[in-house]
Amino acid sequence: MKLRFDAVSKSFGDNHVLREISIDIAAGEVVTFIGASGSGKSTLLRCVNLLETIDAGSIALDGDVITKVGVDPNPVRRRVGMVFQSYNLFPHMSVARNVTLALTEVLGIDSVEAMDRARTLLERFGLLDKIDRYPDQLSGGQQQRVAIARAMALNPEVLLLDEITSALDPELVGEVLDVVRELKGSGITMLFATHEMSFAEEISDRVCYLDSGLIAEMGPPHQIFTEPANERTQQFLSRVLKGQRRD
């Protein structure tokens, strides 16, 4: 098992964001988390690379519990990449440096080799001509693709995608999803929190519907999207899909 959530709970004050979540995710699997805002999708992802500490339960990566007190978070984070809703690129660094920073500083790779790797990644995501630009000079879609390249630079085993298209104009969503589609082919394990239902249906091996910190329903995408068993899933999907058709 690549990633195992065992009764993971997390609250912010009185707000129980995650309630005893348990999921096993196989290597290479793509699991999409859907649910209303505040249902716990983002928090669940942030717990995996230890940006949030969980209150109870455990998360294991390749069988090693990473949420124990005293575990050094940095080696875990090298194996778990994350892409954020608002890109979070470093605005004072060029595209190239955004991608090479972790290579030279975390892995200690020399700058020439790091640059080679950055070039390869940026070419793969169609951004080679932007290598010397700065984030503020790029479109949202380009910035998010750079952010994916930055996360992929360390060659992570697990990639966390936290609503990566939510801040984008509709016409820019496609180019970012193309990159995700391409990544799926490479066999990386992905956890994907999203509101893009049709894309979730296309790309996921499993879809997980979160409702107020609980897994309300989980299963293969066609099952969740065409014949959801849970009444709340049905309501959520009809609400969301109506909205997305209007677009």
């Binding site: 942030r46 690379n49 940006l51 978070p73 940095n74 080696p75 984070r77 090298r78 778990v80 990449g81 994350m82 954020f84 608002s86 979070n88 690129l89 470093f90 920073l101 972790a102 500083e105 975390v106 952010a147 930055r150 996360a151 360390l154």
Partner: peptide, 13 residues
């Protein structure tokens, strides 16, 4: 704060 989150998520101390 999101800048810090991005840097830490890359494994930077």
């Amino acid at each position: 704060e999101s800048q810090r989150a991005a840097a830490r998520s890359l494994g930077l101390s």
